[in-house]
């Protein structure tokens, strides 16, 4: 989240992709960075946050989140 915020500060439109488990922490980081309303994309279960993902799982996650990322970039 902080990386996305700092890229935004540098003028580069960005989207943070965060596992649902870490959404609270991401919101907190946005808040302490002075961007409490900064939107982000979440990845939900069945993919646990710290698991070693297989290539097929990574592709599946990418398919899920790509439209959300593009939608958020277009909305800003």
């Amino acid at each position: 989240m902080r990386d996305a915020v700092e890229l935004e500060w540098a003028g580069i439109p960005s989207v943070a992709i965060v596992h649902e488990t870490m959404a609270g922490s991401a919101r907190a980081m946005a808040r302490v960075s002075g961007m409490g309303e900064y939107a982000f994309v979440t990845v939900d279960y069945p993919h646990v946050p710290l698991a070693v993902w297989a290539p097929d799982e990574v592709r599946e996650i990418a398919r899920q989140v790509a439209p959300l990322v593009l939608g958020q970039l277009r909305a800003t």
Binding site: T21, M22, G24, S25, A28, M29, V32
Partner: peptide
């Protein structure tokens, strides 16, 4: 340093 459980301490 704001490492409060369920805030920045996860």
């Amino acid at each position: 340093c704001r490492a409060v459980p369920n805030f920045l301490d996860r």
